[in-house]
Amino acid sequence: MGSIEDVQTILKQESAKKALVFTDKGVAGAGLLDKLLAVLEHCSVDYQVFDELKPEPAYGDVEAVVEQMNRENGDIIIAIGGGSVMDAAKLCSLLKGSDYTVKDLLDNPLLASKQLKTVMIPTTCGTGSEATCNAIVAIPEEQSKKGIVNAEMIPDYVILDAQMIAGLPASIVAATGVDALAHVVECYTSKKATPLSDTYAAAGAKLIFRNIEQAYKNPSDMEAKNNLLLGAFYGGVAITGSGTTAVHALSYPLGGKYHIPHGVSNAILFAHVMAFNKDACAERLAQLCDAVYPEQSAGSGEEKADYMIERIAAIVKNTDIPTNLEAFGVKMEDLDFLVDAGSRQQRLLVNNMKELSLEDIRSIYLNVLKED
């Protein structure tokens, strides 16, 4: 708690004279931005605030923010917010003064190099954006989302301060926490998993599995919330090492067309995708179970894999996240669109240990279109 004060050290180290501050109206309205601005004013550092970004923005929304930013001088970027804010700030760190656009980076993400250093201060406990080289934007004409991946976007500094999530609504704790849980489980079961990504994914999984329900049910439990914040950061490190898989791939059309919050769409799909994947990654799930729930160590590998999938489903249920798409207006006649759009997310699908045919994708979406 209180580590936001460390921004002073960063500003001094970087000899910063003016900060470009990225946030959104919700963060500002909750008073969290004031904590940062007080630090900047104490350091006599000038600043310009950009707070018009929409949640889960389209690439055009980010380009509008870039245009605003390019009218200002600044020597460091500070993002205080959730994943959308941090992703936009990371893109802006590449696009400051450039003659290319976010849309250009969708076609060729390696066009860009970092122009300004970045400081990330997450205000949710789940996106992991503060540790990744990814930025996700919606593509309205495709009614889906896409990730821009460039190692230049890895943040230079990260401030993890639990006071930033002290007043987070329970529904956001749930959605962002399950998003972080998906990160660590998907990374641990990814084709591209490495010993390094495994280390962070397992550590993050233990923190999130063991704390998310308590953080949701008891908002005053700051130890549980702090553990979620750290677990989400570990998940972001793991993503940079290995990448997510089919849960995230199939969730992108749900966010892009139906504007279902990212963490919620992941949560709805999570257990179904892992159950589909089980025969290809049971050993990995069992290893993860040993790391998270050593009290289950006497069980067989299959029993431990089943236990992890059961825990995922239970966490979604216990945090009151919807378990199907009925509440979001997704109809059975939308199935063909979902299958086509989901199958196009090859950047992530290639990481999945089990190949998904069009019929496999259709079956998973059918599971979440039907009523429980």
Rank of each mutant, 00 (worst) to 15 (best):
S197T: 09
Y188F: 13
G82T: 09
G81V: 08
A202W: 12
R344H: 03
K17F: 07
R210L: 11
S300Y: 04
A246V: 07
N324W: 07
E152N: 12
L40I: 07
V330R: 00
Y216C: 00
H262C: 02
A282T: 10
L168S: 11
G231Y: 09
G83M: 13
E14Q: 10
N150L: 06
A291K: 09
A314P: 04
K146P: 14
L269S: 02
G60H: 13
Y234F: 14
K304E: 04
D179S: 05
V330C: 03
P109M: 01
D334Y: 02
V158C: 12
K146T: 14
I4Q: 00
Y100H: 10
R344D: 05
L20N: 01
D306R: 06
A28P: 04
M153Y: 07
V65K: 11
A175H: 06
V273R: 08
S84G: 00
L91G: 02
A89L: 08
G83R: 08
A267L: 07
L37P: 01
Q346M: 15
A249E: 09
G147T: 11
P219I: 11
P195C: 06
I77R: 05
G97T: 06
V62R: 08
T124M: 06
G81E: 07
D61F: 04
H262L: 05
A341D: 04
G74F: 09
E72A: 09
G82N: 05
G31Q: 01
P219G: 06
H262W: 00
G81H: 01
L356W: 04
I321P: 06
Q68L: 10
K145I: 00
V368G: 00
A203D: 08
A267V: 03
R284M: 14
I76S: 04
Q296E: 12
Q346S: 15
A201W: 11
Q296L: 15
L37C: 07
G329Y: 01
A166W: 10
D340W: 08
A58E: 08
N367W: 02
I10C: 10
I315R: 06
A131Y: 06
F233T: 13
